[in-house]
Write a protein that binds this DNA or RNA. Sequence first.
DNA 1: GTCTATAAGAGGATAGAC
DNA 2: GTCTATCCTCTTATAGAC
Lengths: 211, 211
Amino acid sequence: MAVTSENGRRTRIQQENRERILKAALDMFSRSGYRGTTLDQIAAAAGMSKPNMLYYFRTKQELYQTVLQETLDDWLTPFAKLDPQGDPASELGAYISAKLAHARINPKASRLFANEILQGAPLLEDTLKGPLKDLVETKSKAIRTWIADGKMAPVDPLHLIYMIWASTQHYADFETQMDALEGTEPGTRDKRFEGAERTLFTVLFNGLKPR
Amino acid sequence: MAVTSENGRRTRIQQENRERILKAALDMFSRSGYRGTTLDQIAAAAGMSKPNMLYYFRTKQELYQTVLQETLDDWLTPFAKLDPQGDPASELGAYISAKLAHARINPKASRLFANEILQGAPLLEDTLKGPLKDLVETKSKAIRTWIADGKMAPVDPLHLIYMIWASTQHYADFETQMDALEGTEPGTRDKRFEGAERTLFTVLFNGLKPR
DNA sequence: GTCTATAAGAGGATAGAC
DNA sequence: GTCTATCCTCTTATAGAC
């Protein structure tokens, strides 16, 4: 019997199992990558047998792609919300806050994404060249308008976007490095994100020049 | 017979083979990670048989660790050169240029490093908590002095360092994404690095506020 | 739906000839 | 030093009972 019933609905048990598997898969894939993760590990983390897990997702590929796709939607949402009607300080500020919150709350999603890009993004090519490219072009135009209206300094929108992505995602992707440099006492991470936001705001909006 | 002769020297052939293997290993490991790379692939890329390669590096681990260590030295050098006696604009500027040059010339080293950190840096822990931590503390102190001397705006040195690392390494680690967004026509990458440097300088030193 | 058992193959490492 | 052949483990996936 197939994983979904004929009308496409799932029972509550099925839904729960699916979610347990996807959560376990994100845990493992985000840390060890696709090849570095075994189905045994995911099944154990999900608390079920491997063949049972393969009843829900027929192959490792299928499981990985599902996790990746769900992660990606999360990733795109805050960027899409950037509003050209607003002013740059509040819009970019809100976007940075949202990205940092995402790095704090769901670092695994960020790392899964980073892992995939690092490996050449074989499964992401279509999304990157399609929806993401369109979104980047739209938002670049908004930034150019802000600049033309004298609302912000003239910078290349694309590189500004890269800079924001890089310096926010870094707090998820390089968390291990930060933990090693700062220690990992309880509360350290929350403080880190406060400091990150403060510093990013200061540098991005005012720069390092003495005032 | 061992890989090195009794006096510890290597023949020219041995030296060349070693280097061919290390280059091939960096190529593969940086793209596919440790688990994602097979000895077959490395041996093929190095143009020799697998057993022959294993004559030079007895295990996959040993080969990986050697590549990683050599990469790391490269990574640390420019940071160590940051001179507290200079002024922030030229010192940080030179550091950013050096990091961008590294991302352009040796993106694989950056990706190997990123891969390792993403996976929890099992082999890098000692370096991160030792030499790197010391270096970061030294350079943080220098930045604090610049701030106290009124030479730059008051920001948290640690987060400033993270920001510089993030937004420079991004050009190596997320190159795939940038290629997808911008296309990969010849010359694109060189132009990209020029734009990156210009934007980073502008934003970091002057900020986005309209002037 | 879930399990045990196992097939099928990939991949790290070694043996031993040359 | 380098090769061919091979061992053995790990891993994905399936068969088939319950």
